[in-house]
């Protein structure tokens, strides 16, 4: 593991003149790995939660690939995804749905993992376009990943190159059905197989210079 200078232990002098030690990996990040979130004790309560969750899909506005260009029409009156309770949020902390909009280069994969881990539970991932499914156009490219579910738990794939906005709308509806049925267990799956996911991620991200779990 390479270490960036800003992640190394150092002495910092505060504005008031006091010196103190900072160890960013311990002080700024939580070391505890993610844990499985158990469902509610009574099934009917869990169903109610799932119904509520399905009604507000808040998307993280992180355009990772070409597919991001179709997000704009979705936000505007023509397709208007807002009427389905779908909204775009600028920060991972406010979002619960991460749309991987197309190919992921290894450099973006690193950021996508960080963004995913920073999102609050329960969280879902949609893979958009054939690039996330099997590499698509870039099946022989040296810089893009070919199979998204090796690195992040994917709940739903939307096929197409590039998928039309209507396909995305259908995908949102499908996603809601999955959530309501209680089958969108991506975050728990990630917590359960945390070591496996991390090993896969580290295999393609060669300069791993961040904490293993940064939320």
């Amino acid at each position: 593991m390479m270490t960036k200078p800003e992640l190394m232990k150092r002495m910092v002098k505060g504005p008031d003149g006091l010196e103190f030690e900072v160890d960013p990996l311990r002080d700024y990040y939580c070391e505890a790995p993610p844990t499985v979130m158990p469902g509610a004790y009574i099934q009917i309560v869990e169903d109610f939660f799932n119904w509520a969750r399905s009604q507000s899909l808040w998307i993280l506005g992180f355009g990772t690939g070409c597919g991001a260009i179709e997000m704009r029409p979705l936000m505007t009156p023509r397709f208007d995804a807002y009427r389905f309770g779908v909204a775009w949020r600028p920060t991972p902390r406010q979002a619960n749905l991460f749309i991987i909009s197309g190919y992921l280069s290894t450099k973006t994969l690193k950021r996508a993992i960080r963004a995913y881990e920073q999102m609050q539970n329960p969280k879902y991932v949609i893979g958009l376009g054939s690039c996330t499914i099997n590499g698509g156009m870039y099946w022989d490219s040296y810089n893009t990943i070919k199979k998204l579910d090796e690195y992040l738990p994917v709940d739903l794939y939307i096929a197409g190159c590039m998928p039309r906005p209507e396909a995305l709308l259908a995908g949102f509806e499908e996603m809601k059905k999955i959530i309501r049925a209680g089958k969108a267990e991506g975050a728990n799956q990630y917590a359960e197989n945390f070591a496996w996911y991390k090993a896969n991620q580290k295999r393609v991200i060669h300069d791993w210079d961040m904490p293993d779990y940064n939320w």
Partner: peptide
């Protein structure tokens, strides 16, 4: 002399069936 296909096959997991 860099073979991108070979690199991609070695580095990335692929979905079978292509």
């Amino acid at each position: 002399d860099f073979d991108t296909l070979k690199y991609a096959q070695e580095a990335y997991a692929e979905r079978p069936g292509r």
